[in-house]
Computed example of a mutant assay.
Amino acid sequence: MNSTLSLDDDLQCSSDAIIDLRFANPKDISAWFYTQADRYIILVCFPLLFIFGVIGNGAFLLVVAFIEEMRTKTNFYLVNLAVADLIFILAEVYENLITHLISPTVKSLSYNTPVGCGLMFTAIFGSHFASVAFMVLLALERYLAICKPLKHRMLVAKRRTLSLVVMAWIFGFIYAVTLVSPHFFVVHKSCIIWPDDEQYANLATVTINCVPIHPAYARFPYLMQSLPYIFALIVCIYMYICIIKNLSTRSEVTASTAGNLDFEQKARRVRNQVARLLITNAAVFFGCHLPHFMLRFNDALLIYTNGRVGWKLSQSTWYILFWCNRALGTANSVVNPVIYSATNSRYRQAFWKVFTCRWKQKAPKYRKIEVSSAATKFVSRL
């Protein structure tokens, strides 16, 4: 039985780290275990997301690596986004799935050193913040190409693009290390005294968790997780609206000046395809992460206002929302390649070439169609 505490020789629990559950009510005890919904999300959803995420993002990396015409500046940003997604998926699945398999309690992790805590959460948050930065760079690149073509020509140098990508990675991990990850840098070991029932007989009496390096950090990260997301959401919405308006106006003007019905139809099709890609990519990214940051923002409101502002959730409800939100955020890293192929025929053809091992096959030569210079400029900018 667990009425007495049996500890490892190298483990010392202070008085405030001993949790006596012998006389606790069943509701408080159940809070230490995963619910059925938690187990379904962790044991079913996360493995599926891992498999499809690795296959999809890996296939996109192969597409860009093997097919020369896919090595564009936009795809260079998307390649880095795919790498960030892979890091995020690997870290998230390990942190959730392996931890659950090792211990049935929700407050026990699989790593028990400060290095493990620091590396794990830095990988999760660093890759996510880098993804946010890449979303802004993608929107900025398309905004300049379509709305500010003269300025875009001044910023298309490969060295400048590489510098922006490096800065995005640096921002993601420095922001994580300095403002968010310190919330999880210290290993905290709690010693549990379980009730004297047979169902608790074989449970571990020690749980391991990652806690802040200083009590001041306990409130800090919940708000700091939301700031880059909110900034990127506002910036991307503004630039995407400008892009769609510009595409609509330009296609009508160029089609009327070209006096070519065939070009008018092609211009409308290209405009709609680009608009679908922009809207879908942005909506899925921000939509998948919005619930998690709303939950964290609500936590920050409750903490900073001492519970006067915000929604007070029960612990079981909070955990269900937490796991659902983390699975939804991980799903975003999985569906990006699907979005590319679903909204753009070039990506579909490129994926098909890679899956059928025909990436060395050259694209067929099409008959050259003479159109006006205005039409040529319009299509090239898309």
Rank of each mutant, 00 (worst) to 15 (best):
V180P: 02
L203P: 00
T4P: 06
A267G: 03
S380E: 09
I170P: 06
P364H: 14
L223H: 08
A37Y: 13
K27N: 14
P26M: 08
L61Q: 05
L321E: 01
F355Y: 11
C191A: 09
S226P: 03
R71M: 06
N344W: 05
S314R: 15
D197L: 13
K151Q: 15
V211D: 07
A157R: 09
P114R: 04
A82Q: 04
P212G: 06
L119W: 08
R271T: 10
E92C: 09
V379E: 08
I174Q: 09
I193K: 07
Y238Q: 12
F121Y: 10
A282D: 03
I146K: 00
K377A: 13
N332I: 01
T280E: 02
I19L: 03
R153D: 14
F351T: 00
M294I: 15
A157T: 10
L61P: 11
A258R: 05
M167A: 11
G172H: 02
S163N: 10
I42C: 03
H152L: 07
A218Y: 11
L49R: 01
M167L: 12
N80M: 04
D299V: 14
G307W: 07
R159V: 10
A59T: 12
Q12R: 13
A17V: 08
G329T: 01
T72F: 11
I102F: 12
D196Y: 04
S30W: 03
G310Q: 03
Y319G: 14
V156Y: 08
F60A: 02
T343H: 03
L321D: 05
R71Y: 08
L43G: 10
R358I: 05
M224A: 06
N25C: 07
